[in-house]
């Protein structure tokens, strides 16, 4: 039920129009950061106010919304954003990736492949991939204009010189359609291949930094690399201890005070789906028996 004290999806119409225009320009120039006038939201900046504003501008009453935080539907952050939109937009919610029409995410791309018609909205803390190389906005804007991305390659190559490998494992920079270098938000680089050629529309919202950018469906996204050091999405050399998945992104979880630990899928919906289908990991028990 919609709380009538708020406008539909909380934001006023003028604000939604402004955000919607920014989203459309982002779609038209994939990977380019469109400035927008971010509004105060009833939650702190670290809680994804950019993503929340993009979601609010996109929602229709018929939507089914999923919200994940590091892959999980049940964190405080994910739960409060989901409740916020249930209350202000009256939308249905779900934890099932396949059933969602809009998925707002912090730091993960779902393991389950997305489909056409879905929108994935990322919460972005720092949208500018060149920021740690150049603090001045006027300069980074110039660098994007002139496609001056050499410094970014130098930084990655210094990693190789120092560590023998590229150390960046989150927010690994990508190039979009051969033009703009883009920060994919702090997803693990394991997720980077899923950015490219996705059937879903991907929208990125940075609240504090007031930027929106987009990847239309089937957009080519390439992780920066070198001929002699090709991009390696890398993953932990484990299977999920609950569902046995060999190719999902894993979180390491401490399970007792003797230092015992296990590896579990970070995507809780994916892991549950596999367990419900009968898959059992090394430390798991069949779901029907009510075990973990």
């Amino acid at each position: 039920m919609t709380d009538q004290a708020y406008n539909f999806a909380y934001l006023d119409e003028q604000t939604k129009r402004m955000i919607r225009r920014a989203i459309l320009k982002g779609v038209a120039v994939p990977g380019y950061q469109v400035p927008f006038a971010s509004r105060e939201m009833p939650m702190p900046y670290g809680w994804g106010t950019g993503g929340v504003q993009v979601t609010a501008a996109c929602l229709v009453p018929e939507d089914r919304l999923k919200v994940i935080d590091q892959g999980a539907d049940d964190t405080t952050n994910a739960v409060s954003i989901r409740k916020f939109f249930q209350r202000t937009a009256g939308v249905a919610v779900t934890e099932a990736t396949t059933a969602a029409s809009i998925i707002q995410t912090r730091h993960r791309i779902p393991e389950t492949p997305l489909h056409e018609g879905q929108i994935l909205v990322y919460q972005v803390p720092i949208p500018e991939p060149l920021r740690f190389l150049e603090p001045r906005e006027t300069e980074t804007r110039k660098m994007h204009e002139l496609e001056e991305y050499g410094l970014m390659h130098v930084k990655l190559y210094e990693d190789i010189a120092r560590h023998g490998t590229i150390a960046t494992s989150y927010a690994y920079p990508v190039k979009v359609e051969g033009r703009y270098v883009m920060d994919p938000s702090p997803i693990p680089k394991f997720d980077n291949p899923k950015l490219s050629d996705s059937p879903a529309l991907q929208l990125f919202g940075a609240g504090r930094e007031q930027r929106i950018y987009a990847l239309p469906p089937y957009t080519q996204v390439v992780s920066l690399d070198f001929d002699d050091h090709p991009f390696d999405p890398s993953k932990a050399a484990h299977d999920c201890d609950l569902c046995g998945a060999a190719a999902s992104y894993l979180d390491e979880v401490i399970i007792d005070d003797q230092g015992g630990r296990m590896f579990v899928c970070s995507d809780t919906d994916f892991c549950r789906g596999r367990r419900e289908a009968g898959h059992v990991g090394a430390l798991g028990v069949p779901l029907a028996e009510g075990g973990m």
Binding site: F8, E13, K16, R17, C58, L59, V60, G117, L201, A214
Partner: peptide, 16 residues
């Protein structure tokens, strides 16, 4: 609020 939301989604889908 609701009609413009639906219209925007159609426009977004068309441009995307």
């Amino acid at each position: 609020p609701v009609q413009s939301a639906r219209a925007f989604r159609a426009a977004l889908d068309a441009l995307s």
